[in-house]
Simulated scan of single mutants.
Amino acid sequence: MRLSAPIYHLKRRAKRLSREEGVPLHDALDRIARTEGFSAWSMLAAKAAALTPADRLFPQFMPGDMVLVGARPGQGKTLMSLELAVEAMRSGHRAAFFSLEYTEKDVRDRLQAIGVEPAQFDELFEVDCSDAISADYVVKQMAAAPRGTFVVIDYLQLLDQRRENPDLNVQVRTLKSFACDQGLIVVFISQIDRSYDPSVKPCPDLSDIRLPNPLDLKLFDKTCFLNNSEVQFRAAS
């Protein structure tokens, strides 16, 4: 059974229901679960955990890979990227999350939203929310990162927002070369153009990436697109 929305959306519905109707949160969660065809929230949560694709996707990544994770707002691209980072850490690798969008608290709150206690991975997980994030900044910060380190950049379209930074294509090429040399896996969270129409195709693809500046999309080895609980993963041919 496929859920009608990502589990974190269902949790938000339950919290809103709890506030609006003055019922305990656990009752609201169970009510939401029943609308999804489960007798209780615990059953839905167990099913959702089994449906999480990150554990199936992560083994397909190799050191040196450049990965694009794209979706419209609210479809779970940040959570998917964090789930993949968690899989990397569970495999004994380090992970780093560079964000021009969120604060460190936001990132840790989102880890908790997917059922992960941040303290569990404190020694393996680095969050960097500096305004100076760019390709050169990431290269400098990750210069000593061991092979297999999983790096998330949030998000692609913000990398060249500062005029002093090189253009986006140059930065992505820099990171591709660095990932190959260091044996890192680099994931870019990406916006999707508003023209994307889910009634035409169930998931966006490379043609739907929002590109305010030119970028050679062939630089990415693998892509993962999300929409309405649908996940499409592709490796470059």
Rank of each mutant, 00 (worst) to 15 (best):
M62C: 01
L44S: 03
D193E: 05
V139K: 15
K77D: 07
E101S: 05
A179K: 02
V67H: 03
V231F: 07
S18M: 07
R173E: 14
A54Q: 09
P118T: 12
S207L: 02
C180Q: 07
A119S: 14
S134I: 08
S99W: 05
V23N: 00
V86Y: 06
C180I: 11
S177P: 00
E20S: 15
R31V: 11
S229K: 03
I114A: 12
K222C: 11
E230S: 11
S199H: 08
S199N: 12
R72H: 01
D136Q: 14
L215Q: 02
D208N: 11
N169Y: 03
F61I: 08
V67Y: 04
K176C: 08
G148N: 01
D131G: 14
Q161V: 07
F225N: 00
E87K: 05
I209E: 00
G74V: 10
S199T: 10
W41K: 00
E21V: 06
N228K: 08
R2P: 08
S195Y: 12
S130I: 04
K222V: 06
V200A: 13
V107Q: 13
I7E: 14
R72F: 00
V67Q: 06
E126Q: 14
E123G: 10
Y102L: 15
K201Y: 05
A145T: 10
I209T: 00
V139N: 06
V231L: 07
K105C: 00
Y196E: 04
S177H: 04
A50T: 13
L226M: 05
R147C: 05
K77N: 12
V138F: 01
E230Y: 09
T223D: 01
